[in-house]
């Protein structure tokens, strides 16, 4: 994939909005990869968390849209706990979810009626509340 970097990319409204929503200054990131190293979902992510931060830093909205990274983030906060620059990466993931959830045209990622019966009968209520809020419009 070729990324196009154009003049003004660093101050796109996208990056600014991401900074605002997450409350994190992603420009302080020095790409050490500690977030990715400790992320329990990194092995199944198409792009690891530190690279998502990098793309966001470069204002690459298009490249970020459609990635599975932030949907696979379980907000376990391991990255926040260990980031040497004190960045809450989980907040950046949440901000990306907020930005990309509403404009999605595909069907919802989780349909309650499609969940296995045995699972539905036992899964904690809190999972449905939190999960449906995360995955559905």
């Amino acid at each position: 994939m070729t990324l196009r970097l154009e003049r003004g990319t660093f101050t796109t409204t996208f990056t600014q909005r991401l900074k605002e929503l997450s409350g994190q200054d992603l420009f302080t990131c020095y790409q050490c990869g500690k977030c990715s190293a400790g992320c329990p979902s990194a092995s199944v992510m198409e792009t690891p968390p530190h690279a998502v931060v990098r793309l966001a830093w470069l204002g690459q909205e298009k490249a970020l849209r459609g990635l599975n990274t932030y949907w696979l983030c379980a907000a376990c906060l391991t990255c926040d706990l260990r980031c040497p620059k004190g960045i809450d990466v989980s907040r950046i993931m949440e901000a990306l979810r907020v930005m990309f959830l509403r404009p999605r045209e595909e069907p919802d990622m989780v349909a309650p009626d499609s969940l296995p019966k045995d699972m539905l009968s036992r899964i904690p209520q809190q999972a449905l509340v939190a999960g449906l809020r995360k995955y559905t419009k």
Partner: peptide, 16 residues
């Protein structure tokens, strides 16, 4: 002991 259990990712990514 400090890992993530997968939390409510289980709604969507059951293999993971």
């Amino acid at each position: 002991r400090l890992e993530c259990c997968g939390s409510y990712l289980s709604l969507k990514d059951r293999d993971h």
